[in-house]
């Protein structure tokens, strides 16, 4: 009996190791890169503790289901006249559950004509992608969308 249970044990661990792919085993270790930063800290660094309001002016486009987390197209457009008095100063893109939530900080000027930015991001797991917009009037607007990831992109 002992031998049987021993073999069973080996088979179980072997099977588990095969099923748990490197990426999953990796997330269990909770890797922290040198730039690891959580969402609250990242937002506070930008707003200085001021309140952020969700706004329909900010349009965030991302797929609802991403088959490959390594390449997720994200685009942000902000409804703004982009004049010298009233323009979007910055667009920040966050992936809320990556070890470093910051993806890109885009500093815009009135010369852009239109407040838009698009790129492709890596997502480790299913999570919210968030855009934080800073306007020249000192407002902080945000928009978020959930993206379901079938295969994670950080591993």
């Amino acid at each position: 009996m002992q031998r049987r249970s021993f073999l069973k044990g080996i088979m179980m661990t072997g099977a588990a190791a095969a099923v748990v792919s490197p990426s999953l085993a990796f997330s269990a270790e909770a890797p922290k890169g040198p730039n690891a930063m959580d969402l609250d800290t990242a937002i506070k660094a930008i707003t200085g503790g001021k309140s952020v309001s969700a706004s329909a002016k900010v349009q965030l486009k991302a797929p609802e289901i991403a088959e490959n987390g390594a390449v997720v197209p994200v685009s942000v457009t902000v409804d703004s006249p982009m004049s010298a008095e009233d323009h979007v100063k910055a667009i920040h893109i966050f992936a809320t559950k990556n070890s470093n939530v910051r993806c890109a900080d885009v500093m815009l000027t009135p010369a852009n004509g239109k407040a838009s930015f698009s790129t492709r991001v890596k997502l480790g797991t299913s999570q919210d992608v968030m855009a934080l917009v800073v306007t020249s009037k000192g407002e902080f607007l945000s928009a978020a969308q959930n993206v379901k990831v079938t295969i994670g992109g950080c591993g």
Binding site: A70, N100, C103, D105, V106, M107, N112, F117, T119, K122
Partner: peptide, 12 residues
């Protein structure tokens, strides 16, 4: 007219 600071979370 535009400056971008990016991090490792952007795709290859």
């Amino acid at each position: 007219f535009t400056t971008i600071k990016s991090w490792e979370s952007l795709s290859t």
